[in-house]
Amino acid sequence: GKMTGIVKWFNADKGFGFITPDDGSKDVFVHFSAIQNDGYKSLDEGQKVSFTIESGAKGPAAGNVTSL
Rank of each mutant, 00 (worst) to 15 (best):
P21M: 03
F32V: 14
K48S: 11
G46L: 04
D23W: 05
G63L: 13
E54M: 13
I6T: 15
G15V: 01
T4Y: 08
F51V: 01
A62T: 02
G17P: 00
A12E: 12
D27W: 01
T52G: 04
K26D: 11
P60R: 14
S67G: 12
F51T: 01
T52A: 08
G15E: 03
F10D: 03
F51N: 02
S55C: 10
A12K: 14
F10A: 02
G17R: 00
N11A: 09
A61M: 11
A62H: 01
Q47G: 07
T4G: 03
K26I: 07
K8S: 09
F32S: 12
G56S: 13
D27Q: 05
S50H: 08
T66Y: 09
I19G: 01
F32W: 15
A57E: 14
G17L: 02
G1V: 11
S67C: 11
S67V: 15
V49M: 02
A57R: 15
V30G: 01
D27V: 02
S67R: 12
S50V: 05
Q36K: 15
K8P: 01
S50L: 06
D38K: 14
D44P: 10
L68Q: 09
V65M: 01
K14H: 06
V30Y: 03
K2C: 08
F16P: 01
I19Y: 00
G59R: 09
S50R: 09
E45P: 15
T66L: 10
H31S: 06
A57W: 11
F29H: 06
L43Y: 02
L43T: 01
W9H: 05
G39Q: 10
K2N: 13
A57Q: 12
D22L: 06
A62M: 01
D27M: 03
N11K: 10
A62D: 01
K41F: 06
K41G: 07
A34C: 06
V7S: 00
G1L: 13
E45Y: 10
M3T: 12
I19N: 00
G5P: 00
I53M: 13
S42R: 13
I19T: 01
G63V: 13
A12V: 11
K8M: 02
A57P: 15
I19E: 01
G17S: 01
P21L: 03
L68R: 07
G39V: 07
I35F: 06
N64E: 10
F16W: 15
F29N: 03
I19Q: 01
N64T: 03
S55I: 13
G63D: 10
K14G: 07
F18L: 07
G15H: 04
T66R: 13
K48A: 13
G15F: 01
I35G: 03
S55H: 15
K26R: 14
A12C: 12
G17W: 00
A34V: 08
V7E: 00
P21F: 00
A12G: 11
A12F: 06
I6V: 15
F32Y: 14
D22E: 09
D22H: 07
V28E: 02
F16Y: 15
V30A: 03
S67Q: 14
K48G: 09
F10R: 02
W9I: 05
S42P: 08
V28G: 01
G15D: 02
N11T: 03
V65D: 01
K58W: 05
G56I: 03
T66F: 08
K8C: 04
D27I: 02
V30W: 01
K41M: 08
D38H: 14
G39Y: 08
S50D: 09
W9G: 04
L68V: 13
A61F: 15
G39A: 09
V7A: 02
G24I: 02
I35A: 04
K58S: 08
T52F: 09
N37M: 15
V49K: 02
S25G: 15
G17M: 01
K14Q: 10
A61K: 15
Y40S: 13
S33K: 10
E54I: 15
G15C: 03
D22T: 09
T20I: 12
D23G: 10
G17Q: 01
G1K: 15
Q47Y: 03
K41L: 07
D38N: 10
F29I: 06
P21S: 03
M3Q: 14
K2L: 04
Q47C: 08
V7M: 03
G39D: 10
I19R: 00
G56W: 07
G15N: 03
G17V: 03
F51P: 00
M3R: 14
K26C: 11
K48R: 13
D44N: 12
S25E: 10
G5C: 00
T52Y: 08
Y40P: 12
N11V: 03
K41S: 09
G59L: 04
V49R: 01
T4N: 09
P60C: 07
E45C: 15
D44C: 12
A62L: 01
Q36R: 13
G39L: 09
L68M: 12
K14Y: 07
